[in-house]
């Protein structure tokens, strides 16, 4: 196995998340109760998604400056993995919403923004697949993904803070960080974000290598 060290870090952090995520101390809060632990599993999905979308953005900009096919491939695979995490974020969010807000889907800016982000990136893949020429595809996809990233920031970071959202830290609601003893949550939350992100990078890495194998088989 190549580059074993970061894969080992990924495994250690994920094992830490699934054990300490259940055993660690959490602040006692009304309505949320123990479901606050979803912070390590639901919220981390979105964080990991955003980090992978940053990888996509970086590679898209890099491709515009220096059009190497591999850069475009990394951009595509990172956003693909980000979408998997985003779908998991939506599904886990729906379950959590059902038991804290009372419905699978509430008309909330954050939720609709998240769904909007998924649609914007769905369009990215449709756009990619509609262009035959590799160079042209890479260039247009790169330009679009810069736009898509900006839309993502607007949809899930800016708009929810301006409108009324049920999410913590949005629309006048206190964020998790404002609760006392929040460091107990951070102790698991940050390692969890890194762990899930590395898992995404790992899967993305395998997909990229399969692509390379495929290409060398075709040629």
């Amino acid at each position: 196995m190549k580059n074993i060290w970061w894969k080992a870090v990924c495994i250690i952090l994920l094992m830490y998340t699934v054990t300490m995520g259940f055993l660690g101390d959490v602040p006692a809060m009304a309505i949320l109760n123990e479901s606050i632990r979803n912070l390590y599993f639901h919220v981390t999905m979105w964080f990991a998604m955003m980090i992978l979308l940053m990888v996509n953005l970086y590679n898209s900009i890099k491709y515009l400056g220096d059009p190497v096919l591999r850069t475009d491939e990394i951009a595509e695979e990172s956003s693909r993995m980000a979408m998997v995490l985003g779908i998991l974020g939506l599904l886990t969010g729906m379950v959590w919403a059902k038991y804290t807000w009372g419905a699978w889907w509430v008309n909330d800016v954050q939720l609709n923004g998240a769904a909007g982000t998924m649609l914007v990136y769905a369009a990215y893949f449709i756009l990619r697949n509609s262009i035959e020429d590799e160079q042209k595809r890479g260039r247009i996809a790169a330009v679009y993904s810069i736009f898509a990233f900006a839309m993502m920031i607007v949809f899930i970071i800016i708009l929810p803070r301006m409108g009324d959202s049920l999410h913590p830290g949005k629309g006048g609601n206190p964020g998790f960080s404002s609760y006392d003893l929040d460091h107990r949550l951070r102790l698991v939350f940050y390692p969890a974000v890194i762990g899930w992100t590395l898992l995404g990078v790992w899967i993305m890495n395998i997909r990229l290598r399969i692509r390379t194998i495929n290409k060398s088989l075709e040629s």
Partner: peptide, 10 residues
């Protein structure tokens, strides 16, 4: 399982 897939690709 992921490790085994990784090794297979390798």
């Amino acid at each position: 399982y992921l490790i085994s897939i990784d090794r297979k690709v390798s």
